[in-house]
Amino acid sequence: MASYNPHHAFRVNGRLTSGENLFEISYSLIKEGEEFEKHIGEFLLDWIDGSSTISVKTSGSTGTPKTIVLKKEHMVNSALATGSYFDLAPESSALLCLPATYIAGKMMLVRAMVLGLNIYFVPPTSNPLEDTNRSFDFGAMVPMQVKNSLPNLHQVKKLIIGGAPISASLREDLKNVSNASYETYGMTETITHIAINPLNTGTGFESSFSILPDVKISVDERNCLVINAPKISDETVVTNDVVELVSEKEFKWLGRIDNVINSGGVKLHPEHIEKVLSKYLNIPFFVIGVEDEELGQKVVLVVENTSKSDIHKTLDKILEFKKFEKPKAIMVSKEFKRTESGKVQRQKTMSLL
């Protein structure tokens, strides 16, 4: 059986952790910890159980959640690539504030074990830095956590952000934070990120993703990204993400092909329209295509628990929309349907309207 013993410098909340006492720590978390700590303990035991694979749930943001099986060897390779890119040395400190039930949280633990990091974990709340004064060399958050943590974000020297699109307003806010924040592109099948976009190191709003070493990219006939990364996946990963290849190592993400709106024969990407709107709307919203007799589909703005009249006034002021991009209608949902990790489920939300 394969052995995946942690690095000799691996620490949990400051406590030096060897293969021998990792069982004890894991069982303690499962038996006595809070709910999020139980998941951490369970994953740590799964990692050292002698098996060569791990079962991981996908988030279900674009469809039905499913369980896929990943090789631990590939997870180790992913952790090594991240450590190399971000120059993470043994005994560097790391913050885990994501649930260990999904790949992003699991990989923070794997990076700590593989690279010998000192990992501290806090409850995976919307404001994870609220109750800690400690500084960290490395961490990972979703955009909602970043937004709520802005006053304290300097506590995380190098921060990767993923799981959902980053709004234009948050990108602007990050330029004023004295840390290094990076937008990531990836998915469960690629064991989190395979491409990085620095956010507050002088890059602009429309900057592109740069792929990590040992990754090759191309597009299929739909202009969707195809990923060939043998060190982290035995199979080529064909995505539903429409991209523009800038070079053989860079791409711009345009949106999900599942979400494309065909309005009057013009293909529109809701994600692009949402980027424009995010400069003006500081509320939960998304854009979707709805059947229309004249256009085939029309652009509709869906907002959460907000007055339509206020939104109409805002839309009238926006001059950046191209042909057919301005929403033709506004719909109000009392509450969006979301996955456990906080991603908005567009179709499920629409089915309730």
Rank of each mutant, 00 (worst) to 15 (best):
L277N: 10
G264N: 09
V215E: 11
R171Y: 01
R222W: 05
V302P: 02
D173Y: 04
I196G: 07
T201E: 15
S263V: 01
E206K: 04
Q297Y: 13
K298W: 05
E244Y: 04
E244S: 14
V303T: 02
G186A: 10
D234G: 14
F209H: 11
L277R: 06
K252M: 14
Q297L: 06
T239H: 11
K252A: 11
L245T: 06
N176V: 01
W253A: 10
H269E: 14
V226E: 13
V219W: 08
E221T: 05
P198E: 07
N228G: 01
T190M: 10
V246T: 07
I232C: 09
Y182W: 13
V260N: 09
L245A: 10
E235M: 08
V303A: 01
Q297M: 09
R171H: 02
V215S: 12
E244A: 10
I232A: 04
L295F: 15
L301S: 01
W253K: 04
N176P: 00
R256S: 11
L225N: 08
L174E: 02
I261W: 08
T236M: 14
G204R: 00
S208A: 15
D258A: 01
I217T: 11
Y182V: 01
D258Y: 00
V177H: 06
D258Q: 01
H272E: 15
V266W: 02
L277H: 06
I211N: 11
A195G: 12
V302A: 08
K249L: 06
Y182H: 13
A195T: 07
D220H: 03
E250A: 12
K175G: 10
Y185D: 03
E293Q: 08
C224H: 02
V246Q: 13
I161G: 02
Y280P: 12
I273Q: 10
